[in-house]
Design a protein around this nucleic acid. Structure first.
Lengths: 162, 162
DNA sequence: TATTGTTATACTCTATAACTATA
DNA sequence: TATAGTTATAGAGTATAACAATA
């Protein structure tokens, strides 16, 4: 049984524009469903902390620094999959908020060791609760097995571990 | 069996930065796997046609216009989930490429009827083949049943049909 | 020579607000 | 008053290229 070779949609567009929309092949395309799911899920998902809002990307940075204290700028960038230059604005902002601090490496003076601060850890705990809540929302109506399947297939699709 | 309560990753980060990266809760988060899958899948996916490149969004516009001739600017925008103003640059570009044409509605002079041109249909056919190829790539290693499951869960997650 | 972090710059995508013509 | 399309503008996110300091 295919995802949908037959149209999902019912009626043609009326000339006055009030009919249902024909979607063509679009609903059959996994890539397109992925794109829409991503855009709808992350639209308007900013987490309010300390009077400003932090993005999913900042959450990821804080989580990685919490698990990997002393991580260098370069290694953090490659872990997240960004160019090193693209990470700078986010790091600068987190340092301004006193959630992260930079310290020149003793063994390689070119390199900075990035560490999350105690305040950063407190904020991270709060962000985790937002993230868990969002997880609950976006998987509403799915069984635990379905969530695991979805996670596994997305992981494979992105080649995250391969 | 959970997606991963135990860490996916093996070793701590060495002080010299050569160890494996600890990922914390990140690999367990469906939202995060979705984000990464989307970003990796669509990064560098531009389709070369007529000497320029067209985005997945432009493919979607052409597909919808092919299925719904005479669609208005506003209805197209809401079908795609964008603000009407956000659609303008894409439409202008498609019209410059002679893939789409606009015609003032006879019944409501404020409104434009958008139609794909014969050239647009030819380009659309080419885009479809690119898209199908990309579908094959991103679902490589999945069974047909897995692809269908993934599509169904993504669709439910985005609330696309609900 | 190569690498680390940084800056300058630009591009893509999208949003808000204001405008015009029309309803 | 309200709506359709457009314009101007701005913001987020990311990339490339070039630079200084260091390896």
């Amino acid at each position: 049984m295919s995802a949908s070779q037959a149209p999902h949609d019912a009626d043609a567009l009326d000339s006055d524009g009030k009919g249902a929309m024909r979607m063509g092949v679009l609903p059959t395309l996994v890539g397109r469903q992925l794109r829409i799911a991503y855009l709808r899920t992350f639209k308007d998902f900013s987490m309010e902390v300390e009077g400003t809002s932090l993005s999913p990307g900042s959450f990821e940075i804080l989580e990685l620094l919490s698990c990997n204290p002393g991580l260098s700028h370069s290694r953090l960038a490659s872990a997240i999959g960004l160019e090193k230059s693209s990470l700078v604005p986010a790091i600068v902002r987190l340092e301004e908020m006193a959630l992260v601090k930079r310290k020149q490496s003793a063994t390689d003076k070119r390199s900075n060791e990035l560490r999350i601060t105690p305040k950063g850890e407190r904020v991270l705990a709060q962000l985790r609760s937002y993230v868990v809540q969002r997880e609950t929302e976006i998987t509403a109506g799915m069984t635990r097995a379905e969530v695991d399947t979805l996670n596994r297939l997305l992981t494979r699709m992105a080649g995250i571990n391969g």
